[in-house]
Design a protein around this nucleic acid. Structure first.
Lengths: 202, 202
DNA sequence: GACCAAGCGGAGCACGTGCTCCGCTTGAAG
DNA sequence: CTTCAAGCGGAGCACGTGCTCCGCTTGGTC
């Protein structure tokens, strides 16, 4: 399932048809460019890739930040929807949790801007964070109920772990792609209930 | 042991005394500013903090990158020296490894530029990387000889883990400082030889 | 004390990048 | 077909930031 399969979230009635089309083209192109180059790219590059002038770009998105936010929101929601569906479809709680990390990391591996957004101030919007927390919490609860998750592990721990590993994915993307799977495996084993010693308080 | 306890690596004979003094002041100030603000700070801020003009700064360091490299090299070497001494002084191999991570992360937690340097292209100089690998490899070997490290764990795995956790330290530095210790604990438990299943190949 | 090369300060230049302005074009309503 | 507001393109402005230039100052030597 790719991004294009998800419905565009904000169709705007009353606008001229070409404007609507341009808006969609810009979001599409910006998504690609941000993913490849990170949030620091020159806006002209996005305009160029969209085949649209600067005026048009800034008519639709008053600032670069707003464009980035729109794109990230869209990509996050697509990813979260997929992740949720996949999690629901997996019977075994542990496989569901592991699969979530696997999917998250391999998706984000190809999207610089998304990884950056976790580091930078602000990051993704609150509603996305909230949604992400909900999914992780559901996965965590299922594992706890099955007695296979280490006691004391919080949703925040899992969220932070995901962000931390994302970074590992990025740093090894060029030199040793796939090495992150080893770290993931190590972390998951550390999360197993076979480890009974309590974790340090904050 | 702090940075000031380490000898300045490059005293330059034949230079005027005030120039030598200024050079030291600049390195000191730049170290603080880079640590607080990251590598993206305005050079003027470093000049201001040094109490020195732009001309003086650029006389000693022809580019900002060179200044940053000099500062990072110095800080890395100070950190590595401390880490090595501490590792040598710890009898128990596992405590030595855990202590290395603990020290690395709590040091880097207060130094944005260092963490960034692992992410950015280039990063620390090759000789630093090499030295760091040597230390980690020594720690790893001791653990392997004692039979307490999970089979198949490489020096690269441990290096990558360190960088990955550094990121976690940064992202939670403001909101939940100390949470990274929980992730570290989880990772270390996953590295224990009690986990016998082999890690995925690259 | 006199001399001067080495060193210094900071105004200002060059350039990259976010954003605007305005004359031209075009979808669509009548 | 006519009309025109909505939309478009891209030159160029504003500003932040790396770096330079040059007249002034000063440590060191005789």
């Amino acid at each position: 399932m790719t991004l294009a399969d998800h419905p565009s979230p904000a169709p705007r009635p009353g606008r001229r048809a070409d404007a609507e089309r341009n808006r969609a083209v810009i979001i599409e192109a910006a998504g690609e460019v941000f993913a490849e180059c990170g949030g620091g790219v020159d806006v002209r590059e996005i305009a160029r890739r969209s085949g649209v002038g600067m005026g048009t770009l800034y008519r639709h998105f008053p600032t670069k930040d707003e464009l980035l936010a729109t794109v990230l929101e869209r990509q996050f929601n697509a990813w979260l929807t997929d992740a949720h569906q996949q999690a629901m479809a997996t019977e075994d709680p542990w496989r569901a949790l592991a699969g979530f990390f696997e999917q998250t990391l391999s998706t984000q591996a190809r999207n610089r801007a998304v990884v950056e957004s976790f580091t930078a101030t602000g990051g993704p919007s609150d509603s996305c964070i909230q949604r992400c927390y909900s999914i992780i919490d559901e996965l965590r609860t299922r594992c706890v109920d099955a007695g296979i998750l280490r006691p004391g592990v919080t949703t925040e721990d899992l969220f932070l772990l995901s962000g931390s590993l994302s970074q590992a994915v990025l740093t090894t993307a060029d030199s040793r792609p796939g090495q992150w799977r080893r770290l993931l495996r190590i972390s998951l084993d550390g999360l197993s209930s076979r480890n009974t010693e309590s974790l340090p308080e904050h």
